[in-house]
């Protein structure tokens, strides 16, 4: 066996293993910095309008239907949440901050109980301009919601441009939401 071939036989598998290790390292680093979630799924609603629905109000607020989302005066968020959802509690301050900055947020309470919802809103604040109840989760299934919280960005043409599954953080707002707002405002 020539020394050249010996070197290749040793070097190629080593290089492949090193490349694999580097890839794992990058993935783990990005997972740690909340930049990448391997469980996140692409939403099927991106580039489309939300499917037909009509939900009654919750927490003493006005509900809404898909037709109300057809042409919002400015880009807005639809936030799916529930009083029984722990990450939703963590997300509440961020939603409050976004609402205070003038962003329109409509909420949909997913499989929630009226009393628990009222308590949640008292404790965590109410960032929503409209709030609907999806008591049996049917509308959620039609939207492709697979957990709460989930946040959808809807542009002025009523098209869904972005879906984020999980609690909104400073980083998500800075790296994902703010560029969208700049682009679609």
């Amino acid at each position: 066996m020539s020394p050249w071939r010996r070197r290749l036989l040793f070097g190629i598998p080593l290089a492949l293993a090193a490349a694999g290790g580097e890839a794992f390292y990058v993935i783990l680093r990005r997972m740690q910095s909340n930049d990448y979630d391997p469980h996140a799924l692409p939403s099927q609603l991106i580039g489309k309008r939300p499917p037909a629905f009509s939900l009654s109000g919750a927490g003493g607020m006005q509900g809404f239907a898909n037709t109300d989302l057809a042409a919002p005066p400015k880009p807005m968020l639809v936030n799916w949440f529930a009083s029984w959802c722990v990450p939703c509690r963590e997300e509440a301050p961020m939603l409050a901050k976004l609402a205070a900055s003038g962003l329109t947020i409509w909420g949909i309470a997913y499989e929630d109980d009226a009393q628990a919802l009222a308590q949640f809103l008292t404790q965590n604040g109410n960032p929503y301009q409209r709030l609907a109840a999806d008591a049996d989760g049917t509308t959620a299934i039609n939207w492709g919601v697979y957990g709460v919280p989930e946040t959808y960005f809807i542009d002025k043409a009523g098209i869904v441009r972005w879906r984020y599954a999980g609690a909104l953080t400073d980083e998500v707002v800075a790296t994902q939401l703010n560029p969208l707002l700049a682009k679609y405002s």
Binding site: L41, P42, S43, Q44, I141, N142, W143, G144, Y146
Partner: peptide, 14 residues
């Protein structure tokens, strides 16, 4: 087939 499509339409091929 249509039942499978119902699911794929909502959640994607995943």
């Amino acid at each position: 087939r249509d039942i499978m499509n119902y699911m794929v339409q909502r959640y994607g091929i995943f």
